[in-house]
Write a protein that binds this DNA or RNA. Structure first.
Lengths: 294, 294
DNA sequence: AAGGTTCTGTTCATCAGCGCACGAAAGCAT
DNA sequence: ATGCTTTCGTGCGCTGATGAACAGAACCTT
């Protein structure tokens, strides 16, 4: 491994300019500094890089070798810095979004539209029961539901509410009826997500109000809960965005706001300022607003 | 142009190691320094390179881009430094030797033998009436004749003596005779080098002892003087090394030491220590010594 | 020849960058 | 749960790198 890249850079400019003074001016340092860098580098290498004379520094063979390599290095680093400087302002590369699975069906069409507006972007939409950690760089934007996130480096903005209701399939309702607003739950079958996130409102409600033996179908994924309800396995909670226009689902037990939780748009403070993230959060907030107003 | 290569190198190690501490250890600096470098670089670029968290630094896209480029840079510079470190000790590349033309016929076979001993070397033997300047990197080794060189940065070693004598061709001697030790020069024709180096001993002697109209052949090169003498144009000075075993040349006027001048092996102080130069100077001194003894 | 310009190279005072030490936070093992 | 380890982050004193100034050498111009 090479000890000190700046000294090589100094030597490169001396080889290019042919004089210490010229290199010093290009580098924006005092010419004494340039002399010190060259002396230090030559001492470390045990090789003379330049012939010193009163009219300047002439590269030796070694110095010419350094000139060639450092020229290439300079080009590459210049290109890199150019790319990096524009990076914050450009709508390109990956944009990683994560949410709890419940919101996937709502968010997916929005993200697809957003991607279509910015063809240079690659959207990675990660939905998983585990929380992706913004502070580890696992995602740029997260949509969270429930209590307001408290991580210190996260920028949190309200993002509407999740809204689950209890549904049954039309077939189930026709066969068994539905309990109604304050109906008796006895004799009904329930579908429940049975995962680590047992602190979700519906889970708390069902364990409080429904005997265990009536929970006849348990799934680890919300998607499966929804499939089970549609298949007539029982009554279960489904996001209203999925169910509202579906004639095959009927509301089983109207409970005001019980399963509604605030949703949060969360970004990491390090990435919050980037154009990419800003554009997405603005877009998502507008979509959510439009949806609430309709 | 890129401002500071060392900060990029620091960022590279952070991206590679994943932690500030790890990078600091590899770089041999305090981890506070690493943090300062990263902060400064990100500020200059206006782009976050890393996600900071309690378990380390995770590269962003920009950081990964930097990692890729800096990896290549590191490889190239490591190779360069490897080459450069060995450069002083290796017998390869160019070795530029210069001398006054008089000594070319003596030195050429020696240099050829030296090159054969070190096949990696490329010998460039520059003979010209003008003095090649060691301090401008025009040559590694110079053989000078005459007064001891006084340039401050030159390493000067005695290197035998040049030894010119006055010769005539056998044909000339048979046609006109030779003046002999203290003979009359009247009626004889002379060949003279007519160049800027008029302070050479022979030039001073001939202008002091021979009327101008007897100098019938003047050449700008010593090689031509020799050819002219061999062609019978007149009496001229030729290095004894060229003439001693040649039956076609006879000594015309024996003059003790008149045209003998000390010769000097001169190297520039910057290059004197290199193996290449050391090997050549040692070799040349041994050859000269062997020649004097035979 | 003499003055002006353009270089290098050295000395010295200053200051920025460095290491140190301490604190905080997060993960891990017992 | 509770230390223990690892890691980041920041304030403080200090050293080493930096810049200013001056000297000297070489070259060019007049």
């Amino acid at each position: 491994m090479v000890g000190n890249w700046d000294e090589i850079r100094t030597a490169y400019q001396v080889a290019r300019m042919g004089t210490v003074s010229g290199a010093a001016e290009v580098l924006g340092v005092h010419h004494a500094t340039v002399i010190r860098h060259i002396d230090a580098l030559e001492t470390r290498l045990g090789t003379k890089l330049f012939q010193r004379h009163a009219r300047g520094y002439t590269p030796t063979e070694a110095g010419q070798d350094l000139l060639t390599v450092a020229q290439a290095t300079d080009d590459q680093l210049t290109q890199l810095v150019g790319r990096l400087k524009g990076r914050g302002e450009e709508m390109a590369g990956e944009l990683i979004v994560t949410s709890v699975p419940d919101l996937a069906s709502l968010l997916t069409p929005w993200l697809a539209r957003f991607q279509a507006m910015h063809p240079g972007l690659i959207i990675r939409f990660m939905t998983d029961s585990r929380l992706f950690r913004l502070e580890y760089g696992e995602a740029h934007v997260a949509i969270r539901a429930g209590a307001v996130p408290e991580e210190p480096d996260n920028v949190v903005q309200p993002f509407g509410r999740t809204d689950d209701k209890l549904y049954a399939s039309r077939a189930y309702a026709e066969a068994h009826g539905v309990p109604g607003a304050d109906g008796d739950l006895a004799g009904h079958r329930f579908v429940c997500s049975d995962s680590r996130e047992s602190r979700a409102p519906y889970n708390r409600w069902i364990h409080a109000n429904v005997p265990d033996d009536q929970i006849v179908f348990r799934a680890s994924e919300q998607r499966v809960v929804e499939l089970a309800v549609r298949a007539g396995a029982g009554i279960g909670h489904i996001p209203v965005w999925d169910a509202r226009d579906d004639p095959d689902l009927v509301e089983a037990i109207p409970l005001p706001d019980t399963f509604s939780a605030p949703a949060w748009l969360v970004t990491h403070v390090d990435l919050h300022r980037t154009t990419k993230v800003q554009a997405l959060t603005r877009f998502l907030k507008e979509e959510a607003k439009a949806l609430s107003l309709q």
